[in-house]
């Protein structure tokens, strides 16, 4: 019974982890390569979820919806980079915070104007709506498993892209020394637009998948954005590998703390008190983790 509960929650934690990774990968690339603090990254997550819902309803297929939403969000991301972010490269981090804070407002209200304030519910495709029996007595939804597998596949693909392709080589060059890469003939402007579009696409994928588990609503981007920033800092800024390890760590710690802490505290206090304290401790667990990691390694796990 306990094993199954922990196994199930562990899988849920990994699934939150891969969602966080998709967000954090884009964030860490934009942060590490372009040196831009991009608060409105969560907006692409939200837009991705809404576009998946709209395209999915239009073509009557969730998968087609998701497949169309990703490039659409990537295009929006590139447009945003071209219109606004491009002017922020040489600016103070705080100007970037102010500007991207403005972008969050714009996107949130824009989405509210187009899709309304009511949450939308995305349903996963028919063929993945069943459950799989992973352990005796542990039936796990197929779709959640599919999210997990997709996330890990994208992580592997991203690693290949960064380690084995010419574009990846340029990305790494840009991350380690922007000026030198530019002097050696890398078109930095184009590279940045691509990075930004890539990040937006990954965020949209995360949003489109998470939208089936959570509800699709305005403001969904901000709640995950803060966690994604925590992941980036834990993993080390600019490191995609760090983002993966950090994301899985954060996902597992958050989910398991929510399951285990209230139960564990029931031994020491009464049930009602334990649930209250347990819940607030569990919500803080991720931040405690970050403080501990930074105390141990001030630059994050894989920080340069």
């Amino acid at each position: 019974m306990i094993t199954q509960l922990v196994a199930e929650q562990g899988l849920n934690g990994l699934q939150l982890g891969v969602t966080l990774f998709l967000m954090a990968a884009g964030l860490t690339l934009v942060f590490g390569i372009m040196d831009v603090i991009h608060l409105s990254h969560g907006s692409f997550y939200m837009v991705g979820a809404y576009l998946t819902a709209t395209f999915g309803a239009r073509f009557d297929s969730y998968l087609v919806g998701l497949a169309l939403a990703i490039p659409a969000a990537a295009l929006i991301g590139m447009a945003v980079e071209w219109i606004a972010i491009r002017k922020l490269y040489q600016r103070d981090h705080l100007d970037q915070v102010l500007a991207t804070f403005g972008l969050i407002m714009f996107f949130n209200e824009g989405v509210r104007m187009i899709w309304g304030a009511q949450p939308i519910f995305l349903s996963p495709p028919q063929m993945l709506s069943g459950t799989v029996e992973l352990l005796p007595g542990l039936a796990y939804p197929q779709f959640r498993l599919a999210i997990l597998v997709t996330g890990l596949a994208v992580a592997a693909g991203l690693a290949l892209l960064i380690q084995r392709t010419r574009l990846g080589m340029r990305l790494r060059a840009g991350a380690s020394d922007r000026a030198m890469a530019g002097a050696l003939g890398v078109d930095i402007d184009k590279l940045f637009t691509i990075v930004f579009g890539l990040g937006a696409g990954l965020a949209a994928l995360a949003g489109g998948m998470a939208g089936t588990v959570l509800s699709v609503q305005v403001g969904m981007g901000e709640s995950i954005l803060i966690l994604a920033f925590v992941v980036v800092v834990i993993g080390g800024i600019g490191s995609v590998k760090g983002a993966l390890v950090g994301a899985l760590l954060v996902g597992l710690v958050d989910t398991l703390a929510r399951t285990v802490l209230p139960v564990a505290l029931r031994g020491a206090f009464g049930n009602a008190v334990a649930d209250g304290i347990g819940a607030s401790l569990a919500s803080s667990s991720v931040y405690v983790l970050m403080v501990l990691v930074l105390a141990w390694r001030p630059k994050g796990l894989y920080g340069a």
Binding site: H93, V233, I237, S283, Y287, M290, L294
Partner: peptide, 26 residues
Amino acid sequence: RTSGVHFIMITLAFAQMLFYLAGGLK
């Protein structure tokens, strides 16, 4: 003890802890 972006994030982390702590004051 930290600086730069890490200082930003660690102050955020402490504020979030207090935020959840306040929410837990039944």
